[in-house]
């Protein structure tokens, strides 16, 4: 099962390596990990995308909670939430591909944010599956570079993760 774990952690040097170290030491998998300070600068929020059985997930949340610097942990995917990922993708845009690329970006509600004679950089936000479909829809030979932030997510409505 796919799970999105959100963590509030003290914004201290080494906090990231405690979390990453825990995952590697215990053999849990990390598909993506994003981290940045929150509106309260003393706290960082981390989002981890992982896969595992219910038992493994139970251990992951328990082990994360055990880290002394971790303030709160939730498994977002347990209830209603929204998730987004940002991708920047550089594509070859010459000749007839130039128009085609623009059209594809429009269809997926992407934005072209850098233009040269032969390339575009397209910015695309959405669920990870949408970014996957966009990549799949393009001619692989035209993709020069991709960079993705990894998933971040937030609970819907009154579900709030805060100290």
């Amino acid at each position: 099962m796919r799970h999105i774990i959100s963590i509030l952690i003290e914004n201290e040097a080494g906090a990231l390596s405690r979390v990453a170290g825990l995952f590697s030491a215990r053999g849990y998998n990390i598909e993506s990990l994003t981290v940045a300070p929150t509106e309260d600068e003393s706290l960082s929020r981390m989002t981890i995308l992982t896969h595992g059985s219910d038992e493994v997930l139970e251990q992951i949340t328990k082990q994360l909670n055990k880290l002394v610097d971790v303030v709160k942990v939730v498994d977002l995917s347990e209830a209603a939430h929204v998730e987004r990922e940002l991708m920047l993708i550089k594509v070859r845009a010459t000749g007839k591909d130039r128009e085609e690329m623009k059209r594809m970006a429009d269809i997926f509600r992407g934005r072209i944010i850098d233009v040269t004679e032969s390339t575009y950089v397209i910015e695309l936000t959405g669920a990870s599956s949408k970014l996957d479909s966009f990549i799949a829809a393009l001619d692989a030979g035209l993709i020069l570079e991709t960079v993705r932030t990894g998933v971040c997510g937030i609970g819907r409505g009154d579900r709030i993760l805060k100290v």
């Binding site: 390596s17 170290g21 030491a25």
Partner: peptide
């Protein structure tokens, strides 16, 4: 020190 001992301490500080 913090890196070497991290996996075998309850917590560590620099």
């Amino acid at each position: 020190t913090v890196g070497i001992t991290r996996p075998c301490v309850k917590h560590n500080f620099l």
